[in-house]
């Protein structure tokens, strides 16, 4: 009898911890949302009135039109390029046994294990020396470093589970490797490619460190612009920074919701399929 009381207490404690975490998280997000539509909010539970004007103010003050366009270009290029580079490489690694394969796998794991800020500083130095620092190209190149290996590692198990006889049949009927890719593999792999690229999309929108180190005034993505706005807070109204934060949240969350229709939440953290042990 005493045992069941103990275990009930334990279960209660565990759920209380989850609840506490979620309440604070939601409170944090809700206070950003509320503040962004508040007229005046000083020393009360809720603001004195509600308005949408901060969104217009933020749009003008932070040149959000330009920032969103840069973000769209950078993220779009990163997604397309990491798909074009990553999927064929994953195919080669899934289907062929070649001498340097273990070395290539190690090479791909390294950028995922070393945190961005550590390799970002030497990378930014090299990009600045090459004249690419502060440009959109530089931002795209820097962001490819973690995303291409990510796509490869997510796609390898996907490709391995396709029956190799499908490709053999295509080759027997005279398809060359390019035709086989376009007409056979891409349609079969589409769900996996879509999932991997959506994860890349979500991760790249939120990728702060690399973009922060490489970008210049004209090549800031939304998250970096938000950082600078918060960093220099006091210059502008809190509400307009909060409005910008909400715009950032919406851009991220729309894609997160789309991504979650295709992937498991744990995949955003992990790197593709994880062995059981």
């Amino acid at each position: 009898m005493q045992k069941s009381v103990m275990s009930r207490l334990w279960i209660f404690a565990v759920w209380a911890m989850i609840g506490l975490f979620l309440i604070n998280l939601m409170g944090l997000i809700a206070s950003v949302l509320t503040s962004s539509v508040a007229t005046r909010w000083l020393g009360t539970w809720l603001p004195a009135g509600f308005t949408t004007r901060w969104y217009f103010a933020a749009w003008d003050e932070f040149q959000l039109g330009d920032v969103l366009w840069v973000t769209f270009q950078a993220v779009g290029a990163v997604v397309v390029l990491s798909g074009l580079l990553g999927v064929p490489a994953a195919y080669a690694l899934a289907r062929r046994e070649f001498p340097a394969k273990r070395f290539v796998m190690l090479l791909l794991l390294l950028p995922l294990l070393v945190p961005p800020i550590t390799y970002g500083i030497p990378l930014a130095t090299v990009l600045y020396k090459a004249g690419l620092g502060g440009t959109l190209t530089g931002v795209i190149l820097a962001n490819l470093v973690p995303t291409v290996p990510f796509v490869v590692l997510v796609m390898i198990p996907f490709i391995e589970q396709i029956d190799p006889r499908t490709e053999a049949a295509a080759r027997v009927f005279g398809a060359n490797i390019f035709q086989m890719f376009v007409h056979v593999l891409v349609p079969v792999l589409m769900p996996g490619v879509l999932a991997a690229l959506l994860l890349v999309l979500v991760r790249t929108i939120g990728m702060f460190e690399l973009t922060f180190l490489v970008s210049g005034p004209g090549s800031q993505t939304l998250v970096v612009a938000l950082y600078y706005a918060v960093f220099a807070s006091g210059v502008r109204a809190v509400q307009s920074i909060d409005a910008m934060a909400v715009i950032y949240m919406v851009t991220t969350l729309v894609w997160l919701i789309v991504a979650l229709r295709f992937v498991n939440p744990t995949q955003i953290v992990g790197r593709g399929k994880r062995p059981a042990s």
């Binding site: 934060a245 991220t252 997160l256």
Partner: peptide, 9 residues
Amino acid sequence: TLGTVLVAE
């Protein structure tokens, strides 16, 4: 997904 910048904000 929101990242440390937004959480800090």
